[in-house]
Simulated scan of single mutants.
Amino acid sequence: MTDYVLVHGAWHGSWCWKRVRDRLQSAEHRVFTPSLTGLGERSHLLGREVGLDTHVEDLANLLVWEELRDIVLVGHSYGGIVIRQVADRLPDRMRALVYLDAFVPEDGHCLNDYLPDQGQRFRDQAAASGDGWKVPPPPAAYFAVNAADAAWVDGLCTMQPLSSFAAPVRLSGACDGVANIGYVLATGFPGSPFPQFHAAAAERGWWWADLPCGHDIMVDMPAELTALLLERG
């Protein structure tokens, strides 16, 4: 039995992992799918003080209080930034790291640094529709979510704190010492910012894989993703 910890991306929550979680549990593994503070069923906790540091503490505390070790830690999109910092803080608890169509920032950089517009679109959206400090979710169609699930995803996504996109990461480099690290790229996401991290993964000697779907891989191709996690974890 393996412990899998699956971390969602911006605007999402634990709900997006349902299909993968069910499959992993059916294979007799333990699965944890925390919703980060202010997101998903914890959206009532969203406030100006919530940001990347809060989300890193959410995940680190889960590992400590659930006494989790030898885990497969998976981060989707913005969740890649969260898992990278937690793995840097607690590398001895990691069996494997999987970046799922995710940001993989270097020390001192933030999510906005890896976007063509340096996050200006998010700042504009926050100013227009989020009281200046929270970003409304893009429509599922933007992420190329399959048509059958688009309304479901749209109905469950929630506001994201703007500050979480501008906060720089602080890394010692211990996260890159984990023995098993991989990157999974969604090839059906037009205008994706993630190929840059996929290419860097190959250069680092990490394993890598492509899946022909939109950005929300866990929604679009849960069976294929589960098989990959079971094979590589």
Score class of each variant (00 low, 15 high):
H109D: 06
G132N: 12
V153I: 08
V135Q: 15
G182K: 02
D154F: 07
L185S: 00
P190A: 09
D107A: 07
K134T: 14
W133A: 12
V82Y: 06
V82M: 09
F189P: 01
G188P: 07
L162I: 08
L90I: 08
Y99L: 01
D154M: 10
L111G: 00
P116E: 06
A127S: 13
D154R: 07
A140F: 12
R89G: 11
D88I: 10
S172H: 10
D124K: 11
A179D: 00
Q196V: 11
F189R: 05
Q118P: 00
T158G: 11
R170L: 10
A127F: 03
V86C: 05
F143I: 09
F197I: 07
R95S: 09
S164E: 14
M94N: 13
S163F: 08
P136N: 13
F197W: 02
G130T: 11
L156K: 12
F194T: 02
P105G: 05
V145R: 14
C157A: 14
D154H: 06
Y183K: 03
Q118E: 02
R123W: 03
F165A: 14
H109I: 01
P139D: 12
V153E: 01
L97V: 04
D113P: 03
Q125L: 14
M159S: 10
Q120I: 03
G155Y: 08
A166S: 14
A148G: 07
A179F: 00
R123V: 01
C175R: 07
R95T: 09
Q125F: 07
F189I: 02
W133T: 10
G177L: 09
D131K: 15
A87G: 13
R170Q: 15
P139A: 14
S163D: 14
D124Y: 03
A141M: 12
S163L: 14
S192C: 06
D101M: 01
V98W: 06
D154W: 06
H109M: 09
C110W: 02
A174M: 08
H109R: 13
V82E: 03
A102C: 08
F197Q: 01
C175Q: 13
D88C: 06
Q196C: 07
E106H: 02
F189T: 04
P195D: 08
V86R: 06
G188K: 06
R95A: 15
V184E: 01
L90N: 06
F143H: 15
G188A: 05
P190M: 06
P138D: 15
D131P: 03
L162W: 11
L185H: 00
F189N: 10
N180T: 02
N112A: 08
G177T: 05
P105Y: 01
Q85I: 01
P116R: 08
A151N: 06
H109W: 03
V104M: 03
V86N: 04
R95E: 13
D107Y: 02
N112F: 08
V184N: 01
D88K: 06
